[in-house]
Deep mutational scan, measured.
Amino acid sequence: MAEQVALSRTQVCGILREELFQGDAFHQSDTHIFIIMGASGDLAKKKIYPTIWWLFRDGLLPENTFIVGYARSRLTVADIRKQSEPFFKATPEEKLKLEDFFARNSYVAGQYDDAASYQRLNSHMNALHLGSQANRLFYLALPPTVYEAVTKNIHESCMSQIGWNRIIVEKPFGRDLQSSDRLSNHISSLFREDQIYRIDHYLGKEMVQNLMVLRFANRIFGPIWNRDNIACVILTFKEPFGTEGRGGYFDEFGIIRDVMQNHLLQMLCLVAMEKPASTNSDDVRDEKVKVLKCISEVQANNVVLGQYVGNPDGEGEATKGYLDDPTVPRGSTTATFAAVVLYVENERWDGVPFILRCGKALNERKAEVRLQFHDVAGDIFHQQCKRNELVIRVQPNEAVYTKMMTKKPGMFFNPEESELDLTYGNRYKNVKLPDAYERLILDVFCGSQMHFVRSDELREAWRIFTPLLHQIELEKPKPIPYIYGSRGPTEADELMKRVGFQYEGTYKWVNP
């Protein structure tokens, strides 16, 4: 592979701008107003304001973009700056750019259920340069409990009458099928589907988006991507930290609602779906819905739930269990780990287990898709061969690698495990991989909904998990304890083995 010439960040961002501006969906010269509902909250200060700053800094926003914060707290732009700027990672050389960014910011205080507050917000936006005809993007960085009041008031008082209007809704989209349907029906009564952007930030990850290209742009994968060759698929999300004093919020939802029903299920769809007619948003989402419709409700015998306990040999936070978090209700049975087996009941995947695993306070930070292939028929190497695996590593250190057998150097035919490896950090030294939120917010500006969740996708996802969630809430089974920093409950490994996964433990990928 030829040595790549190092590029400056300015040059890299210039390439990104060229890609972005050559499309006809990006209205570079139009006025846009980006409204952050819930501007005083954690999500706004840690993710949304920093993301908008990065896009502005790199010249990736339309030229005439204004940012308006809205929340109940009586704040000023200076207050917003004070709480969000520490997350910007701005350099001293960017000081003038930073001043320009905050000059485009404003803030309006108001209630979430008060019509007069929204009329005041609308008047404020109209007073901005060309504000009355601007395109408006409303980001709901809010708890779902206020979605209905907020969307109703936005629709009645704050819509642009000339430009387009788009609304970005953060997960969780309800707690179960019934609450999700209620919320979807409410929002759909106010906005068209092409105006609604239900954001799952995992769909903005580079390697998640790469799944489609790997599958449908490489001839070698087509013939082997089926039940005849693939023994099982494992989708993993692991965090090495616990709730760390923020367990009160987590306890309301648990690990299945927080990660599995959305992030992991979306990745499953991209692995299992048929080739779409095109890369058009609805063509892709149509195929994802077909996959979900082929999955039956989760069966309790295919589920393992766990909850982390303190590690007596650990240090600091590792010595504390979930129930030691003062914000967690006493005696909570909320799971911090889950392993679930699903089956896609169609011709391509009949009988292939899709194993979804996620948890907190585990032994490493990792998100990946792992396809394990069947054993080689007619073994001539005296059971020395391990199964081939194709691994798409989402985070950290984005990579695609194939675990395969090669001859060990020497005189004899002794096979050993090795890999074919594409590590993004080595291959793409001159490429700026956008943060997931950067990519998705740019998608909203461009009107691309491919990486957002459609209402029928959402409904099918909740259909699969709601009976299990209701059973857990009714019966309150005690989750299996696992030690902070471990791989999780051993019962999860036993479940995976029972459905056909072979864990060798003899080879570990190392970032080159």
Rank of each mutant, 00 (worst) to 15 (best):
M1V: 06
A6G: 12
L7Q: 06
L7M: 15
S8V: 06
S8N: 14
S8M: 05
R9N: 13
R9I: 15
R9S: 13
T10C: 09
Q11A: 14
V12E: 09
G14E: 14
G14L: 10
L16K: 13
L16I: 15
L16R: 11
L16C: 05
R17D: 15
E18P: 08
E18F: 15
E19N: 15
L20T: 14
F21A: 07
F21G: 07
F21T: 12
Q22H: 14
Q22F: 06
Q22N: 14
G23K: 15
G23Y: 04
D24S: 08
D24C: 05
A25P: 15
H27W: 12
H27Q: 11
Q28T: 09
Q28H: 08
S29D: 08
S29M: 09
S29E: 14
S29H: 11
D30H: 12
D30Q: 14
T31W: 08
T31F: 13
H32Y: 15
H32Q: 11
H32S: 15
I33L: 13
F34M: 14
F34Q: 04
I36W: 03
M37K: 06
M37Y: 12
G38D: 00
D42I: 03
L43E: 02
A44S: 04
K45F: 07
K46A: 03
K47G: 02
I48H: 00
I48F: 02
Y49W: 10
Y49V: 05
P50T: 04
P50N: 09
T51N: 14
I52N: 02
I52G: 02
F56L: 02
R57V: 04
R57Y: 04
D58P: 00
D58E: 13
D58T: 12
G59C: 10
G59F: 06
L60W: 06
L60P: 01
L61Q: 03
L61V: 13
P62K: 08
N64T: 07
T65P: 05
T65Y: 05
F66H: 12
I67G: 00
A71K: 01
R72W: 04
R72S: 03
R74A: 11
L75D: 05
L75G: 08
T76R: 10
T76C: 05
V77Y: 11
V77M: 10
A78S: 11
A78P: 13
A78V: 06
A78F: 13
D79G: 13
D79W: 03
D79P: 04
Q83S: 15
S84Y: 11
E85S: 13
E85M: 10
E85G: 08
E85P: 02
P86D: 06
P86S: 10
P86M: 12
F87D: 06
F87H: 08
F87Y: 13
F87I: 09
F87Q: 11
F87V: 11
K89Q: 14
A90Q: 10
A90L: 09
T91E: 10
P92T: 12
P92C: 07
E93N: 13
E93P: 15
E94S: 03
E94D: 10
K95M: 08
K95C: 09
K95Y: 11
K97N: 03
K97R: 08
E99A: 04
E99T: 08
D100S: 14
D100A: 10
D100V: 09
F101M: 03
A103C: 14
R104W: 06
R104L: 10
R104D: 04
R104T: 04
N105C: 13
S106K: 14
Y107H: 09
V108K: 13
A109Y: 15
A109K: 13
A109W: 09
A109V: 08
A109R: 09
G110D: 08
Q111P: 14
Y112I: 08
Y112Q: 06
D114W: 10
D114P: 07
D114I: 13
A115S: 14
A116Q: 14
A116P: 10
S117F: 04
Y118T: 11
Q119R: 15
Q119K: 15
R120I: 15
R120D: 13
L121C: 11
N122F: 08
N122M: 14
S123R: 13
M125N: 07
M125W: 04
N126S: 08
N126G: 15
N126A: 15
N126P: 02
L128P: 10
L128I: 14
G131N: 06
G131F: 11
G131C: 11
S132P: 14
S132E: 12
A134P: 13
N135W: 06
N135M: 11
R136H: 12
L137P: 00
Y139L: 04
Y139A: 05
Y139K: 04
L140E: 02
L140Q: 07
A141D: 01
L142I: 14
P144H: 01
P144N: 02
P144L: 00
P144R: 00
T145Y: 11
T145V: 13
T145E: 04
V146R: 08
V146I: 14
V146W: 03
V146F: 10
Y147F: 08
Y147W: 02
E148R: 09
A149N: 14
T151E: 04
T151M: 12
K152E: 12
K152S: 12
N153G: 15
I154D: 00
H155K: 15
H155W: 15
C158W: 06
C158N: 06
S160R: 08
S160N: 14
Q161A: 11
I162V: 09
G163R: 14
W164A: 06
N165Y: 11
N165C: 15
R166E: 02
R166S: 06
I167V: 13
I167N: 08
V169A: 12
K171G: 00
P172L: 02
G174S: 07
G174I: 02
G174W: 15
G174P: 01
D176E: 05
D176I: 03
L177R: 13
L177K: 11
L177G: 10
Q178A: 07
S179G: 08
S179Y: 04
S180P: 05
R182A: 11
L183N: 02
S184N: 08
S184H: 08
S184M: 12
N185F: 06
N185P: 02
H186M: 14
S188T: 08
S189K: 08
S189L: 05
S189F: 07
L190M: 08
F191Y: 14
R192A: 10
D194I: 08
Q195W: 07
Q195K: 06
I196L: 10
Y197P: 00
R198P: 03
R198W: 04
I199K: 03
D200P: 00
D200Q: 00
H201K: 01
Y202A: 03
Y202E: 04
Y202C: 05
Y202L: 03
L203M: 04
L203S: 01
E206L: 10
E206Q: 11
E206S: 07
E206A: 04
M207A: 06
M207F: 01
Q209N: 10
Q209R: 04
N210D: 11
L211C: 03
L211S: 01
L211K: 02
M212L: 13
M212A: 04
M212K: 02
V213C: 10
V213R: 05
L214F: 12
R215S: 00
R215M: 02
R215D: 02
F216G: 00
A217G: 15
A217L: 06
R219M: 05
R219P: 07
I220V: 07
F221S: 08
F221R: 02
P223Y: 05
I224Q: 14
I224W: 04
I224V: 06
W225H: 05
W225T: 03
W225E: 03
N226E: 06
N226W: 05
R227I: 03
R227K: 13
N229Q: 08
I230S: 01
I230E: 01
I230M: 08
C232D: 01
I234D: 06
L235M: 10
T236H: 04
T236E: 13
T236M: 07
T236N: 11
F237C: 12
F237G: 07
K238Y: 01
K238N: 03
K238I: 04
K238W: 01
E239R: 00
E239A: 08
P240K: 08
P240F: 11
P240D: 14
F241G: 06
F241A: 07
F241V: 07
G242K: 04
G242D: 15
G242H: 03
G242E: 00
T243F: 01
G245R: 05
R246F: 00
R246A: 03
R246S: 02
R246W: 00
G247T: 09
G247C: 04
G247A: 05
G247L: 07
G247M: 04
G248D: 04
G248C: 09
Y249S: 01
F250N: 00
F253Q: 03
F253L: 01
G254H: 01
G254P: 01
G254D: 03
I255Q: 04
I255P: 06
I256P: 02
I256R: 02
I256A: 09
I256W: 02
R257V: 04
